[in-house]
Amino acid sequence: MEHIWDFESVFTNWRLLLIGLGNTVLLAVVCLGIGLFLGLFIGAARYSKNRLLNVPASVFVEVFRNTPALVQIMWFFFAFPIISPFRIDSFTAATLGLSLNTAAFCSEIYRAGIQSIHRGQWEAAKALGMRYGEQMRRVILPQAMRRMIPAFMNRAIELTKMTSLASVIAFGELVHQAKTISTIEFNPIETYTVVGLIFFIMIWPIAIAVRGLERRLSRHE
């Protein structure tokens, strides 16, 4: 069967794609910000010695890591509104699902990064008379951060791919816009090819940067 490629019908709808791209980036950036921020506290809570902190934090992390992101998003969109005191639109539901998911994964990155610092560093800082907070802020985190950056960037990659799930609850990101275009124009092959390429162009440079960073870090250590 001969298929006549028709990319023009995709590009006449560039406005729709641009809106989709904007929404994809918006969702990814917001969720990454919230995830990085919350993740630090959840990570700290999980490894605190206080059971009132570490048990709920552990449950949170395990639940969000061991259930599919799509289920999380659909739960926040279809199920959560029933008990929620406020209205939930598709953006809010997607943000809740993806932010909390990202926070769970980031908390583990913080933990692994901090644990990777040699015990001697804590001891040296302690021997100088630093308090716990000072040890963490002045000595441990600056070293750990460098090692965590590639993992966080990988998270950003996964998150950007996951934003496509928001199309399922009709949030107007790239894939949702692609659905709309392909329904109007009957050109799913071309539309999804273009959308695939847009994602690739967004994500691949990050993937290359991650590899470069990892190589640099492993050479330094």
């Binding site: 791919k161 496509s164 894939v175 799913p188 994500i203």
Partner: peptide, 10 residues
């Protein structure tokens, strides 16, 4: 580097 959802739809 592309979302699996896009691959599936494609």
């Amino acid at each position: 580097s592309t979302p699996p959802l896009v691959q599936l739809f494609w």
